[in-house]
Design a protein around this nucleic acid. Structure first.
Lengths: 316, 316
DNA sequence: ATTATTTACGTAAGTACTTACATAAATAAT
DNA sequence: ATTATTTATGTAAGTACTTACGTAAATAAT
């Protein structure tokens, strides 16, 4: 089996299934009249004399409907009887019938045998195992796992980032964010004409021509952006990808790019192109990670700084 | 929860269910398009590129129909595609679609978060646990548990003892076995008249009067016997219970008595009586264990040696 | 005393698997 | 070359639970 911790639960289930099914086979060999799954309930009843449904459910860590189903079955085969409590009329008290007691007594050697064997198999592996599993059972309850994962994601703000499409109110953010990285990396060169055209008229130049602009929102503030520009019916360009410095390292670029790719796929696009610069190392790695391949530029591009050309094939 | 080793499997299942359901909740929070149970399959696919159904089943330790169901679902939501192998036309090769890859990439922070959290929760409890569980998974396969239990029972002959009702061919055994213990414990007194009557004519004196005699068979030989004698429609007597010395300690007396009690219950008997002697300590303990209560003798009984009178109430 | 909430149980429907069985293609045995 | 066996997948039905929801009785709150 794939040994990933995330699959630990799957592995536990398999072991549990294996134990349960082997015990079931042993019970069937003994021609017991009850369904094997009722054994745990019978063991509780044997121990406790008179208990109600909720108590059994709690003792076994199961839900009450499960116990209702099992006890109805045990009643039908005559192993237990149901008595309504006179003190509290909601409560159903359960106890073994004479037949139930007798049959359980007959099963005692088998039960002891299973008990001993389970214990010895476990002890041969790790004498601490039963104790550790008990602790794990207590530790993992109450959605502890879920909450810890959420906390971890929240610390990285990963859980709070939303990606939304273009709205007019984001127009200024679009310009701001792109200016930020352009200035940082290409201060000397300054903004090119093409930059100005897109940044000043995103609606006219991108949206109305069949493209889209996505914005990453964190705490109600725009922290990243990314545009998809339509070239023709089969190819779009990924451009104007930027994340504010403060918000970097939160996978925002990846989320934006993935949303953009999803958009392109929905539009039936076969090829997604992009132009970037060797200066933007992190971006290039992200693109490669997403499946973009570097190709030789076929044509001179509009931007002087763009020396690297990449393509993502979406025809699969 | 009741801390019996026999319920170890139940406990494992609960932990597994808890882990799985918490991961499912996290996935649902992220609005994934696939059913949570498909995650393990997706993780395999992410790792392996192109695999077939049986391979996934083996990697995850599940049956192939489970994988068929999950992969059909993943295909329907567009996360994977099915390709028939050209080399072997039976084989279905599975691989992630672009959409599947993209969505998995988007989930990566969550998956890493779960991975880390599961690992740390487990390590906080017992750094050896994952390894021990892995070993247990391997150790418990192939019906090892079942076979070891069967071996244990077989060593005590517990699995091989059969209880059968009276047949003529057992008549001599009935006499022999009862003589054995009568001689051992009551040598001086010798056989009483009542003994002779029952031992010499079991059919006439017991069977034909609505009673029954049970025999315990081990390796085709009679090793124990026990009679139920009808007193009236509501009360029977348990008598002539004996197990050969060689076969003692195998719970044969208990099995015989339980069969006898079952017979009485089937006949609608309300009270099962027996007379025994204080010399027979083991027998008295067995009777008590089965629910018989000692009462004061109401009448002088037929046997001089019988000083103890017991009753079992079957009206419950 | 009345109303609201909680508790104990019951029922229906869903989930995530399993076992059992069927079929076509590939491989092994004759 | 046939026939038998094995393998890879598919399908139906069963198992052992769960969640979601409903009801009546008990308890708490006003």
């Amino acid at each position: 089996m794939l040994d990933t911790d995330i699959l630990f639960g799957v592995k536990l289930k398999k072991i549990s299934e294996s134990i349960t099914s082997q015990i079931a086979k042993l019970l069937i060999k003994q021609n017991v009249e009850f369904e094997p799954r009722a054994l745990p309930v019978l063991l509780v009843l044997k121990e406790k004399e008179s208990v109600n449904i909720n108590e059994i459910a709690e003792i076994l860590g199961m839900t009450h409907p499960a116990i209702v189903q099992i006890t109805n079955h045990l009643n039908k085969v005559g192993f237990i009887k149901h008595n309504k409590s006179t003190i509290d009329k909601r409560i159903t008290l359960l106890e073994l019938t004479e037949k139930g007691t007798r049959n359980l007594t007959l099963l005692e050697p088998l039960i002891v045998g299973i008990q001993n064997t389970v214990k010895s198999i476990i002890n041969e592996i790790d004498s601490n195992l039963i104790y550790s599993i008990s602790k794990l059972g207590k530790a993992i309850g109450n959605n502890i796992l879920m909450n810890r994962v959420l906390d971890e994601l929240r610390q990285k703000d990963l859980a709070e980032i939303t990606i939304v499409p273009f709205k007019r109110k984001y127009k200024s953010d679009f310009k701001l964010i792109n200016r930020e990285w352009l200035k940082k990396y290409f201060e000397d060169e300054g903004l090119e004409k093409e930059d100005e055209r897109f940044l000043n008229n995103p609606e006219k130049e991108i949206i109305n021509k069949g493209g889209e602009i996505f914005f990453a929102i964190l705490n109600n503030k725009v922290v990243g952006t990314c545009a998809v520009i339509k070239i023709d019916d089969f190819s779009f360009e990924l451009a104007k990808m930027g994340v504010t410095e403060k918000a970097q390292g939160k996978q925002i670029g990846k989320k934006l790019a993935l949303t953009a790719i999803g958009y392109a796929v929905d539009k039936g696009v076969v090829k997604l192109k992009l132009y970037t610069s060797e200066k933007l190392v992190a971006a290039i790695n992200l693109y490669k990670n997403l499946g973009f391949k570097e190709k030789v530029k076929k044509d001179d591009h509009r931007y002087k700084r763009a020396l690297i050309y990449m393509e993502l094939d979406l025809s699969g």
